[in-house]
């Protein structure tokens, strides 16, 4: 791939790649690093693509893989320092009805599936292909994600109303 082509795809899809990574790893600096890795992979890729949409799907899939690999290296080390609690407290007050918190509380797999479906607009079959799972598994994750969000938000509203 030429440098000019790379520039073009960065222009087109960098935001998508970074947002996808950010939604999984929850850290903008890490998401930026992952985005670099993914575009590096694109730049050195020797195969052929059929279309820009094909490239986008390829990029998203790469991003998901890299993001989950990144998460794996951080599992069981997810300490929260006391200092960061204050930061979370500030963010919490900007949270519109707790939806952001609820979304980020979801399991990464559920979160990713919701993101691809609702934000990127992919269909069940396309998501199944991207994530290498069955269509039934995609539907289950969507349902589970929505149910969990609903439970969490209902609890929040209960607390807010002193129930």
């Amino acid at each position: 791939m030429s440098g000019l082509d790379l520039d073009r795809y960065i222009e087109l899809y960098r935001r998508t790649v970074t947002d996808t990574a950010l939604f999984i790893v929850k850290n903008p600096a890490d998401a930026e690093d992952i985005a670099q890795d993914v575009f590096l992979k694109l730049f050195t890729y020797q195969g052929n693509f059929n279309s820009d949409e094909h490239i986008k799907a390829w990029l998203i899939r790469c991003t998901i893989n890299h993001s989950f690999n990144h998460l794996k290296s951080h599992w069981n080390k997810n300490y929260v320092s006391i200092d960061s609690l204050g930061e979370m407290q500030d963010k919490k007050t900007n949270d519109d009805n707790g939806i952001r918190t609820a979304l980020m509380s979801l399991n990464p797999k559920l979160r990713t599936t919701l993101y691809l479906y609702y934000y990127e607009g992919y269909g069940v079959a396309e998501i199944a292909g991207m994530l290498r799972i069955s269509a039934a598994a995609v539907k289950w994750r969507l349902k589970r994600g929505r149910d969990k969000l609903r439970d969490v938000l209902d609890d929040e509203r209960s607390i807010d109303h002193g129930l």
């Binding site: 440098g3 790379l6 520039d7 960065i10 222009e11 960098r14 970074t18 947002d19 950010l22 939604f23 929850k26 850290n27 903008p28 600096a29 930026e32 985005a35 670099q36 575009f39 590096l40 730049f43 963010k91 900007n94 949270d95 519109d96 939806i99 952001r100 979304l103 980020m104 919701l114 993101y115 609702y118 934000y119």
Partner: peptide, 25 residues
């Protein structure tokens, strides 16, 4: 909701320009 979440998470983070990003890659 996802869009707002992403905006919140980006917060005050300032990504590099596309040109710089491409150069690094």
């Amino acid at each position: 909701a996802i869009d707002n979440t992403l905006s919140d998470m980006n917060g005050s983070f300032r990504p590099m320009s596309n040109a710089e990003f491409s150069r690094k890659v």
